[in-house]
Design a protein around this nucleic acid. Structure first.
Lengths: 398, 398
DNA sequence: GGGTTTTGTTCTTCCGTAGAACATAAAGCA
DNA sequence: TGCTTTATGTTCTACGGAAGAACAAAACCC
């Protein structure tokens, strides 16, 4: 690839570009649009918009809803919706769960299976076979009518995007695993899920509420608190995966060079203060304590817990301020176990960001917490596959 | 703006897109191309490529070179070059200099004026009037035949991209300055230079060697060492300016929360270890010592200087490793005074990056130093204006 | 029931690229 | 010298896609 400059645009390029535009427009709208609405929003004529819509409807990428007679003058419009029969499969392996989730183009969860289990130190082949069975089971269910547009696999570690390899997943204790190959052997057909970093994919669920529909935040830093801490920077609605796909390792930003040693070989990493294990250890609590219990104990006045939370907030403030200084992000979104701890963490964190971020005087970064279902990585993996359809609908039309 | 989704593509969109493609292709090539070369590289037919080239030549965006008879079979080709009569003006104010530089579409410096002076604490109106006079003088010179496509102004501080305001330039001691307005009053015609952060613009000179011609590095972190330290992350050849244009403040990434207070209100900022003033102070040298002298003294065995350099390298290692962990950048480019110090800094810095960057095991970040003319910001400002022409040549064709 | 209003469709025109044929300008070769 | 070969550049027709205008459809209003 990378011959030089991309290729010249011809008439057919124009058509596919406009098809993608129409599809994105319908997906981005928060209420069903008519053909006339599409024409207005895309700046094309009604004739052209209708032609493009017809083609997308014929291909199943758009559905025509029931003409509901609103008390309006004029001919009633035919409402257009993203195709309900186009779906994608999102899979996730994490230290604490296996998940398979099926989403349609409207962003609805058609079916899902989530199995909680302690997978730390598990055998990759066995675990991925389990996930494959879970997914096969899911696909055999009510999803039979769905046309699968693709699949994705969220992995809690460094993924080599070029060779589709899981280089290292510290939480699982896995290294150099051909996760896609091991999984695909237990999936129907030639379904090869595209692997991705869990935090990168989970961040997508914040950036868009449904395929092609932008969420309230378009620029933010997402933090995925697991045993360790993953992250992803989202700029203009796009997840920054980096040149090799290794971006977002916020957990290993240095908070204090003289701090405790980290398993990554460095010292004083954020994860050593705000990671789940580190925080519970500092609080003197067993490692299976839930975030809710931590919050309760802090509220009850447990000094050790309060101190640990304070240290975590301080570490987060120092590390995230650095990231925000470099990337100019107006918001930080806490996910994973950090979402549940947002209450006690937020005041100190926001105060530190306000003090340590150079541009805070003009725009103070805000701290938000996600409140979604578990296994956001699986949802994000499905979203990514569906976004690929939105980017190039012609491939689906055949 | 931001109505919804962008606008539908029509026939004319196709033409302008292909014009831009052809222009970019010629600019990106490192040897003059023929019409036939353009056809091959863009994937269009010779007929189409020739038509587009003709239009660009007529508009002055491309020039036809002399048909030089190479010892080759076949009809000799007409070499195509970026238009030599399209130019842009790059301006820069810095703590130590004023600069005006005129670049043409081929990336050649047509004319320049650089005045060194201590501008710390200077009066913005007066200084910008001086720069305006410098630029006016420059434009009256041999540049008379040049068609100005635009102008840019590099400023050493936070620039509000929306309102074209310089919010704060600590090195100059300026705050809330309408730099563009003050400058435009002393420029000919209705020339309003687009303001930008100095480091962002200087990073461009590394990312592209001429308008539209990619440099050897496409993903890197640029460090602009002045009195303080500015920076810019370049991803895929594009400078990440952030949602408000405030990105790249690497100088205020925290190295040690218990470190010295910074003028930004935070503590332990990178700039307090590796900034020019901080480094010279720690080395016990006067503030006007040149980087070359520092290197000499270190080589001569001056313990204080060595200690200061070591502390700077350590601080850079800690801070930059964090940035690289978050952005997955394969290279760090040292600019400003840090470029001259690259020799003594590099070993320790590369070692630290190798240890603290999570993905270093698979790809070790490299440290490079720029070796260009001074006032890279001015060059970058001109490049940006010329890149705007490349992005939309139709506007220039009228 | 006729006028109004909005949606959706049909038909012609225009425009840009593809593709093929042709013209041009050199080198190679007998 | 003249013919062949080769690559560049130009001319001409065909095709496909969007614009624009006119028309048909399906509701409301009075």
């Amino acid at each position: 690839m990378r011959t030089s400059e991309g290729t010249g645009a011809r008439q057919s390029t124009l058509r596919s570009s406009n098809l993608a535009l129409v599809l994105r427009t319908v997906c981005a709208a928060d209420a069903p649009l008519s053909r006339a609405d599409v024409a207005v929003r895309t700046g094309t004529t009604r004739a052209t918009a209708a032609r493009l819509v017809d083609e997308l409807v014929a291909g199943g990428l758009l559905d025509e809803g029931e003409r509901l007679a609103l008390p309006r003058r004029g001919r009633p419009a035919t409402p257009l919706l993203p195709g309900a029969r186009i779906g994608a499969l999102g899979l996730q392996v994490d230290a604490g769960l296996l998940a398979a989730r099926l989403l349609d183009l409207r962003g609805r969860v058609v079916a899902e299976r989530v199995e909680e289990d302690d997978l730390v130190g598990s055998d990759p082949a066995r675990t991925l076979a389990r996930l494959g069975a879970l997914a096969t089971d899911l696909l055999a269910g009510p999803a039979g009518e769905l046309r699968l547009a693709g699949a994705g696999l969220a992995l809690p570690g460094l993924v080599d995007a070029e060779h589709d390899l899981l280089l290292r997943a510290p939480n699982l204790g896995w290294s150099d695993v051909d996760a896609v190959g091991l999984l695909a052997a237990h999936l129907p057909d030639a379904l090869r899920p595209a692997p991705g970093n869990e935090a990168d994919l989970a961040a997508r669920t914040v950036a868009e509420t449904a395929p092609g529909r932008p969420g309230p935040l378009r620029d933010f830093l997402y933090l995925s608190g697991q045993i360790g801490i993953g992250g992803a920077a989202v700029v203009g609605g796009r997840v920054m995966t980096g040149s090799a796909g290794w971006a977002g390792e916020v957990g290993h930003v240095c908070v204090d060079p003289d701090g405790p040693a980290c398993r990554c070989g460095s010292t004083g990493c954020l994860e050593q203060y705000a990671g789940r294990h580190a925080l519970l250890g500092a609080a003197g609590l067993p490692l299976d304590t839930t975030p809710a219990e931590v919050v309760d104990r802090a509220a009850a006045g447990d000094a050790d817990v309060r101190r640990a939370l304070d240290a975590a907030a301080h570490a987060l403030g120092v590390a995230l301020a650095g990231v925000v200084n470099v990337l100019d992000l107006p918001a930080v979104v806490l996910g994973g176990h950090l979402a549940a701890l947002a209450g006690p963490l937020r005041p100190r964190l926001e105060e530190l960001l306000g003090r340590r971020v150079l541009s805070a005087r003009w725009r103070r970064p805000v701290v938000a917490a996600v409140t979604g279902p578990p296994a956001a990585g699986a949802t994000g993996a499905a979203l990514r596959a569906l976004d690929d359809v939105l980017a190039d609908p012609v491939r689906r039309l055949g």
